[in-house]
Simulated scan of single mutants.
Amino acid sequence: VVLDNLSTGHRWAIDEKAVFVEGNLGNEKDLESIFTNHKIDAVMHFAANSLVGESVTDPLKYYQNNVAATLTLLQTMMKHNVKKFIFSSTAATYGIPSVDIITEDTATNPINPYGRSKLMIEQILADFASAYDMEYVVLRYFNAAGAYETAEIGECHDPETHLIPIILQHLLGERENISVFGSDYDTEDGTCIRDYIHVTDLA
């Protein structure tokens, strides 16, 4: 069962074998309908707003969707005794780490509302696990990128803000130039090192 408000998602990208519900994560009616009409064993939550810059200029949007709406989801899960949860978090929870190699034990210190909103949910999940026997997994990763190997689905943002699709658009002649931000990093050319995970590896 796929719940999506299609604000950044696409109806055509959802497998025809899936039950699709157009609705909002923070809407109790939408959630109640799903949990009442379908046997839900586990929830995979990938429905966050995720643009760092936007989170700084519009933090309300990020705390409303990433935190408040997730609490509504968790509350509905508890009501229906669903206690398995996979949470798409972010490496932005680490902020600017003092080590080169980040592990799960590296201290978290997010530096923007996006990272803070994700860390808040991680902390809430730990409390839920302690109080309500919830079982959960948190995925902290940097940039997800790529397409399915058959090319049926892949990245599709409007406007496009992600570096790899922008590079591909440039190579296809659809974009005149590429802007890479940051020029004072301790690297050979001054640009930062970016870490990526392929979407199928993430799946």
Rank of each mutant, 00 (worst) to 15 (best):
T191C: 11
K83V: 03
Q75M: 07
N112P: 01
A48L: 04
L172C: 11
I167V: 15
E16Y: 10
Y63D: 09
D4K: 08
P165T: 05
D184E: 11
W12T: 12
P110V: 10
Q169N: 13
D195R: 13
N112M: 09
V43S: 03
I101Y: 06
A151Q: 12
Q75S: 14
A129T: 07
F87V: 07
D105K: 15
I164Q: 01
N143V: 13
L163E: 00
T187D: 02
M120A: 15
N24K: 13
P165N: 00
L202T: 13
F46R: 03
N27P: 01
R175A: 04
N37E: 10
A203P: 09
K83A: 03
F20V: 13
A129W: 00
Y196C: 07
P165E: 04
E174Q: 15
T90M: 00
M134D: 03
A47N: 03
F85S: 02
Y63A: 05
D195S: 14
L125E: 01
V1H: 03
M120H: 10
G115Q: 00
E16R: 14
H45T: 07
N81C: 13
D189V: 11
N81E: 14
F35S: 00
F142H: 13
E54M: 13
M120R: 11
K83I: 04
V1Q: 08
T70S: 12
A145Y: 15
G154E: 01
T187H: 09
G23N: 07
A147C: 06
N5M: 09
F85H: 04
A151N: 14
K84E: 10
V43F: 01
P110H: 04
V67W: 04
Y136P: 01
N109W: 05
H162P: 01
N24I: 06
N65S: 13
E54C: 10
T103P: 10
I153C: 03
L25H: 10
G146I: 08
G190D: 04
T8F: 09
L3Y: 00
Y62E: 03
G182A: 08
N66C: 07
K79N: 06
R140L: 01
E188S: 14
L31M: 02
